[in-house]
């Protein structure tokens, strides 16, 4: 029982971490309708920034968010403006996939070139110390990540629901043509959304860096999991991404213990494929993408 509770706790903590990465991805996916294969590299960039700032000027890793979040926002906005925007009307949607794959490849290898293949350990300032919550033990940093994920998800949800800009973002996603007729500058909305999506992962990287060693390829693993979560939670659904992340976190932890730690990924991706093929709108997807009969 003790072990089981510990596994559940581990799964939930992992889920919180996944959520913080997946939220930005689902935002970009749902609003701009672009699959950002470079999202994992955004995380990697953010983690290196945190690493450099903590080791360079010795601040607490969480404090680096003040710099990492705006930098990543600009990074995302520029990506949209210079790379995705010119391809929004490409006849062939493969082109957009290749564009973000190209960005991902370039960033990952640039990191290799600069930092080498060795891992970089961000000073953890005691965030790796264990705390006891009833019968289970978790790392202090994990708890903060979990709480931050809840905060981020709630904040984004409120932003989208209550503010003029948030409503304009949702309107653009739901019906772009009509949004333009309301006087919404759709291009600006896309640039803004991409920026916010990247800023979210920037926020995440400041939290994740003290717990996970940074390496040029760290993004690849997380981005694939994040895609699983985004599809599971329903494209563009922020709460969907959160609960999807918790489910995948639990699946990961449980299958790691009961099936075998080397098969965890096979289980996660297996679930992903089943969802993708049988229920592409996701578990929490309200907006069923009508695969209408062509005229």
């Amino acid at each position: 029982m003790q072990t089981f509770l510990q596994i559940i706790a581990n799964g939930l903590m992992l889920g919180g971490l996944f959520a913080i990465i997946a939220v930005g991805l689902t935002l970009i996916f749902g609003i701009v309708k672009v699959v950002n294969f470079a999202h994992g590299e955004f995380l990697m960039v953010g983690m290196y920034l945190t690493y450099l700032l903590t080791t360079g000027i010795g601040v607490h890793p969480y404090a680096t968010a003040a710099a990492v979040v705006p930098i990543l926002f600009v990074f995302g906005a520029v990506t949209q403006r210079l790379l995705i925007q010119p391809l929004m009307h490409a006849r062939d949607e493969h082109i957009q996939i290749f564009a973000t794959v190209g960005l991902s490849t370039a960033l990952m290898n640039l990191a290799l070139l600069i930092f080498g293949a060795d891992i970089a350990n961000t000073p953890n300032h005691g965030l790796r110390s264990q705390i006891h919550l009833g019968p289970v033990r978790i790392l202090e940093g994990q708890l903060w990540i979990f709480l931050a994920a809840i905060l981020l998800v709630t904040g984004l949800q409120l932003f989208l629901a209550r503010t003029n800009t948030g409503r304009a973002i949702r309107a653009t996603a739901q019906n772009r043509a009509a949004a333009r007729l309301m006087g919404i500058n759709d291009r600006f909305i896309y640039v803004l959304t991409f920026g916010i999506g990247a800023a979210c992962v920037g926020f995440g990287s400041a939290l994740i860096a003290p717990l996970y060693p940074t390496s040029p390829t760290i993004g690849t693993y997380f981005v694939l999991i994040a895609f699983v979560i985004v599809v599971l939670g329903g494209l563009g659904s922020i709460p969907g991404a959160f609960f999807g992340a918790l489910i995948i976190g639990l699946v990961d932890a449980l299958s790691g213990f009961y099936i075998g730690s080397d098969l965890r990924e096979a289980v996660v991706f297996g679930i992903f494929l089943v969802i993708l093929i049988l229920k592409p709108s996701g578990l929490f997807g309200t907006r069923v993408s009508q695969s209408h009969v062509s005229p």
Partner: peptide, 26 residues
Amino acid sequence: TLIPEGRQLFPDMSVRENLLMGAHRR
């Protein structure tokens, strides 16, 4: 302002939100 053919509402928004979107203009 153009009221487009086929209504083109924002399907997942409430009526109130749809109307508020109409007033997006400065």
